[in-house]
Design a protein around this nucleic acid. Structure first.
Lengths: 254, 254
DNA sequence: CCATCTTTGTGCACGCGTTCACAAAGACAT
DNA sequence: ATGTCTTTGTGAACGCGTGCACAAAGATGG
């Protein structure tokens, strides 16, 4: 997962709960797909299914933004796309720098999902002099020495760190000193930042470990079930859960 | 961060709260670093700082695993590494397949964080015949036609999807049919899976959008503050929060 | 053996997030 | 207009997660 922020009281920003903010991009994606198929309106039930959430939750989420639906009809797709985009700040252009152009950095530079959402890769930065000038995803890589200048010239406030863990904190410090106030961190380290700077983290290995935990649990239960054996202290398992996955089929309407 | 599962009563697996499970890898990483520096014991306060969490939370998390600490001393690093590894199921070897060897898939194949945590890339799979046989990260790419055979021959239960969005559901269906029960999805789509299959999702674009939201809010507040202006309906802001961000793992367990 | 000091483990209270369930609101037909 | 039907918006209840604060446990020294 991406583990989100670390400590801090989970203050709700601007009256909109964090949990809701985290789902808005999900709704936006589903709505964009509907928009491309020229669907004019959508009910909370349909949209919720497309986004993979509960419809009551979706309605409550939208209620924080205002009353944008029409009872008996549903939500106007285009209007909602606009409202959510505006709420997320995607109506403006966000220049982003990616630091650390290894395999992952290159993948991020090539990722199409950015441009379509108001993000623009302003620069690619790497510490390796051999990389300098080499184009990745059509953008020439620049040397880390120029980091501060690049940030300031482009008015960058969002930085992506894709360096090895050892370099991450130093890069982070320089980014922050140069004026970056939001950081997306792919390096497996806890970054310490001054107040007012947001950090979100994505750690691939952590996601896999969480999956492994559940996988092990499933395997254990299955074994216990077929064995009929009593759970031992070494491989205890309980039966207090009704099923591993109480999910709804996230059905996409045809 | 990864956006994880969607709804679901957040059943706690085996008595260990999901939120705790999500933090165990974090502790494990910090402990591993301590272990490499041959630190024998660590207090909850120190470890919490290293992992970026509250010490009370850490102690409570560990209490779900059992009483592994010594009062007045702290926790034995090696012992704790072992206990958490075992709890997460990392003492066994997890063969993993990566489907979709584009930029991202290649980056994942090269990612070092897997092998060190008990994960082994058993195969790389791509639908492009031109990729077949080409080695990526030292592993020859295999064609998607052989997906089922590869899964079964290697006893794979964890799959990583790094294909374009359009192909993701079809790949997912085939993985599940072949026996995969845990999926890490990088494609920007909601996957629908049968009960008993866990899906975790990582969406880079979503993470950036959440950052943009907070960034916009910070910019708005700053403007309002220097203006001294009254928040308008279009750009309202409040002052009831002391800090920009709460956590909220956008990832919920499956 | 007793006193003191450190650090764990946890009972408890509080707040956020989720879900249910329903009244209010509007569309649409007659 | 009036009634019916659909779907929103939300009040209220519940449950999980968090953090405080402290008692219990053990180390350590005299």
């Amino acid at each position: 997962m991406a583990t989100g922020r670390t400590h801090r009281p989970a203050t709700r920003s601007r009256g909109i709960p964090e949990a809701t903010v985290a789902r808005l991009p999900l709704y936006l994606r589903a709505l964009t797909a509907l928009s491309e198929r020229s669907v004019p309106t959508v009910s909370s039930e349909e949209l919720a299914a497309a986004a993979g959430v509960n419809s009551a939750k979706l309605r409550k989420d939208f209620s924080y933004l205002g009353s944008y639906g029409t009872r008996g009809v549903g939500y106007d797709v285009e209007y909602l796309v606009y409202q959510i985009s505006r709420e997320l700040g995607l109506t403006q252009d966000w220049p982003v720098v990616i630091v650390g152009i290894g395999n992952l950095g290159a993948a991020l530079a090539n990722y199409g999902g950015f441009a379509s959402r108001g993000f623009r890769v302003a620069a690619l930065i790497d510490a390796d002099p051999a990389m300098a000038g080499k184009p990745v995803a059509g953008i020439p890589v620049q040397h880390a020495d120029d980091l501060e200048k690049i940030i300031q010239d482009n008015g960058v406030s969002i930085g992506v760190i894709a360096t090895p863990a050892g370099a991450a904190q130093a890069v982070c410090d320089r980014l922050v000193a140069a004026g970056v106030t939001s950081i997306l961190n792919f390096a497996p380290t806890v970054l310490s930042v001054p107040e007012g700077v947001d950090v979100r983290k994505v750690d691939l290995s952590i996601e896999l470990q969480i999956l492994a935990f559940h996988e092990q649990r499933k395997a254990g239960e299955e074994a216990a079930a077929s064995d009929g054996g009593v759970p031992t202290a070494a491989a205890r398992s309980d039966s207090t859960d009704q099923g591993p996955d109480g999910d709804m089929p996230a059905v996409m309407p045809a």
